[in-house]
């Protein structure tokens, strides 16, 4: 394996809270990211993903542990690391007083790039983000998906070695998400290292070569999406609904069907290698679910298994 572009060992971040014990945002994270890899941090809100991203982005100092980004320690080379990263924050912070093209141009200037280079890069990236006809539009006039694409383009203005994406598609409609995924795929193909956080399973499965599942500032599991599913879940999942008041009561009688049964407030999940067969057994017991659905196991199930909670509450 080539030398890692990010190495974190026992990374920890706590915040002081007046009159209380320190708040632990990131407890103990160790991971490595290889060059060209697409690496995901998956976890619910408050898991410490954004804080981790800030530490990688060299805008937040770690409390303990060691961190190396492109071979440099942010405690000694903060600005230099920042100059080689692209950052796409969770909330768009585009410059509302400037138009789309000016946003790209001036961002390059912040990195100290010559004006000529910034102009060239701005045009190139507008094309990449499929925003050429919006070059002169004010940022406020762009749709959510366009803003995100512009933010990603902005993050690429300095030809970063690593692109950090904090929940890149949160709040976007399905079509806009697919357009965005397509752009990120292209970056991946070009060899840009991507580090992204998400609480969307499908996104992680689409984009991540490898990921860590984070909860309460700790790593719960690590691997490729498919290996995580293999390890922590069954091949298929049968979802059955008996109505919210009956689910709990019925669940007891389902023991023994499939590998494992999980009761959620609105439905029962049966983990099994063959969903259809499990459903037949349930109907054979004389139970008739209101709805039933057989689907492939997903990272959502992995997360549920590992933490006992769902990702999006």
């Amino acid at each position: 394996m080539p030398e890692a572009v990010i190495t974190a060992e026992s990374l920890r971040k706590t915040y002081k809270v007046k009159g209380k014990a320190d708040f632990v945002a990131v407890d103990d994270l160790s991971f490595e990211v290889a060059p060209g890899e697409s690496f995901g941090l998956l976890g619910p809100n408050g898991a410490g993903k954004s804080t981790t991203m800030k530490m990688i982005g060299a805008v937040s100092t770690r409390t303990a542990g060691s961190l190396s980004i492109l071979g440099l320690d942010p405690d000694q080379y903060g600005p230099e690391i920042r100059s080689r990263l692209g950052v796409v924050p969770q909330q768009d912070n585009l410059d509302g007083e400037l138009n789309a093209r000016e946003n790209l141009f001036i961002y390059g200037r912040y990195f100290g790039l010559p004006a000529k280079v910034c102009h060239e890069k701005a045009d190139e990236l507008l094309a990449f983000a499929q925003l050429e006809d919006k070059a002169k539009s004010r940022v406020d006039a762009l749709s959510g998906g366009m803003k995100r694409r512009l933010t990603i383009a902005r993050g690429l203005i300095n030809d970063p070695r690593i692109l950090l994406l904090d929940e890149p598609t949160t709040g976007l409609d399905p079509q806009a998400r697919h357009v965005l995924w397509d752009r990120l795929f292209r970056l991946k193909e070009r060899g840009t290292t991507l580090v992204l956080t998400t609480h969307y399973m499908d996104e992680a499965e689409q984009l991540c070569d490898r990921l860590i599942v984070v909860d309460k500032g700790r790593i719960m599991a690590e691997g490729t999406p498919s290996s995580l599913i293999r390890q922590h879940s069954s091949r298929e999942v049968l979802e059955v609904r008996f109505g919210s008041d009956r689910n709990q009561q019925v669940a007891g009688t389902l023991e023994g069907i499939g590998d494992r049964v999980e009761v959620l407030p609105d439905r029962i999940l049966v983990y099994t290698s063959d969903g259809e067969a499990a459903l037949e057994r349930i109907t054979a017991l004389g139970l008739s679910p209101i709805t039933s659905l057989v689907r492939r196991s997903s990272l959502e199930d992995v997360f549920l298994r590992l933490t006992g909670r769902s990702l999006i509450e």
Partner: peptide, 15 residues
């Protein structure tokens, strides 16, 4: 050009 313009600034996160 980009490498030249941006590389080599020491200092911590809070530089």
């Amino acid at each position: 050009v980009i490498e030249q313009a941006t590389v080599g600034r020491r200092g911590g996160v809070r530089a």
